[in-house]
Computed example of a mutant assay.
Amino acid sequence: MISKTLIACVLVLVPLIVNASIDDACLACICQVESGCQPLGCRWDVYSNSCGYYQLKKGYWQDCGSPGGSLQACAADKDCADQCVRAYMQRYANRCTGGRTPTCRDYARVHNGGPGGCKSASTIGYGNRVMSCYSK
């Protein structure tokens, strides 16, 4: 007989098993919305600098594993910036899905609002902008 504790543990772990792998089209749309997919320099935006293709901030870059040697270097290198966004999504996108596979809208809202961004009303407009690109 399976114990209630074992069942509870399995139910808690199931959401962690879902693979948060953002597809290339969604990644391209986030890049387009953030910068026109251009390697923009750093600029002050909501209490900190935002840099490069995805307008990465220092905390985001640190959470993605700090690739490329510095925020500025990684944000300006498309491959490094792509790697950073993919790693960030792998780390955080499952937090808002309740066990289902994340959608492009989920990824967009996490990118815009951080680990809990998909639950914040402030990221709805951003998610809609990304989805208008993604659905074409």
Rank of each mutant, 00 (worst) to 15 (best):
Q55W: 04
I2C: 04
Y88Q: 04
Y53K: 07
R109Y: 03
I124T: 11
Q83M: 12
R105S: 12
L11S: 14
K4C: 13
D106A: 07
Y126M: 07
S66Y: 01
A93W: 01
C37S: 05
G65L: 05
R43M: 10
V12C: 11
T123R: 03
Y92F: 15
C104G: 04
C84A: 11
R105N: 15
V130M: 09
S35T: 11
G68I: 08
G113F: 04
G116I: 09
D77A: 10
A75L: 10
R43I: 11
Y134D: 00
G36M: 06
I30G: 00
Y134N: 01
W44I: 08
A108Y: 00
A28G: 05
G69V: 10
N94V: 08
N94K: 15
G114K: 06
W61K: 08
G68L: 08
R91H: 11
D77L: 12
A76T: 14
Q38R: 14
G68H: 01
V12A: 15
C42M: 06
A28E: 12
D82W: 03
Y47M: 12
D82M: 06
A75K: 06
Y134H: 05
Y54N: 09
A25L: 12
C51I: 08
V85G: 01
Y107D: 02
M1Y: 10
L56V: 06
D82A: 09
A20G: 11
T123G: 02
M1D: 10
S50M: 04
N19F: 14
C118K: 08
A87P: 05
C84N: 03
C104Q: 00
I124E: 06
P39Q: 04
Y54F: 15
Y47C: 13
Y54W: 06
A121H: 07
R43Y: 14
Q32S: 12
G116M: 14
V18P: 01
L71K: 00
M1E: 09
D77K: 07
E34M: 03
K136P: 06
C74E: 01
S50C: 11
M131N: 02
W44P: 03
A108M: 05
N112S: 08
Y88G: 04
T5P: 00
V14L: 15
A20C: 15
C9W: 03
I2W: 10
W44R: 11
S35E: 06
Y126F: 12
G125S: 15
K78P: 02
C51S: 08
G41H: 04
C9H: 10
S21A: 14
